[in-house]
Amino acid sequence: MSSEGGRAWNRREFMGAAALLAMVVGVPAGASIWSKVEDGDAPTDRQRAMIREVAQIVIPKTGTPGAGEVGTGDFVILALAHGLDGTRDPGAAAAIPAGVPAPRRPDGSLRYLDWLEGELDRRAKGNWAGKDAAAKTAALAALDAEAYAGDGRAPHPWKAIKGLILTGYYTSEVGGSQELRYEPVPGRFDPALPNPPGTRAISNDWTAVDFG
């Protein structure tokens, strides 16, 4: 049951922690969904802390809270466990360079958190979580730049994780209604408004979400 950096969570503990998290960050009625994270996909303590911090570095606190602060790390864990954005596709590991570990599930899909943990430690030449903020950010920035190199179209495991961080953040109440605008009942359609600097986009512009 043990793995590097801490023991694996069992489902009951994970649900308990999630319920606590829900109370802290105001995620409503969310606790039941954690029952859907199978034991094999439950993160270690270290991984859970890592993905929270990674989310916070990608979307940091500015005038509004960052992604880690609003529970995006746990959303990413849930999303990966359920294969959102195609993350159960067995093909994902193919994008990992030869010689770099690509931990997989029995169905061939990549264990993204295991991969990211190893990847960040590799780039940090040691314990990424123990480095200072600048070093952690630098390692992540290098990974991001590499993933989007060239025309940026090639698949890469980091893109999948970053995509889920964005989904988690901009569909959270803070990301969706404070960082961006949430307009559930516009009541009208204005076809040509000025778009001065500082205009905040609408998070529930569903056409943009689908096709943007």
């Binding site: 993933a147 901009y170 056409t207 943007g212």
Partner: peptide, 26 residues
């Protein structure tokens, strides 16, 4: 249509500038 926050999935970047860049309509 104007791109929304999902365009960030196609763009390199992390951090405050990246976040701020996604705040505006695309």
């Amino acid at each position: 249509l104007q791109s929304g926050w999902t365009r960030g999935k196609r763009e390199a970047g992390i951090g405050a500038d990246y976040k701020n860049g996604l705040q505006a309509p695309g």
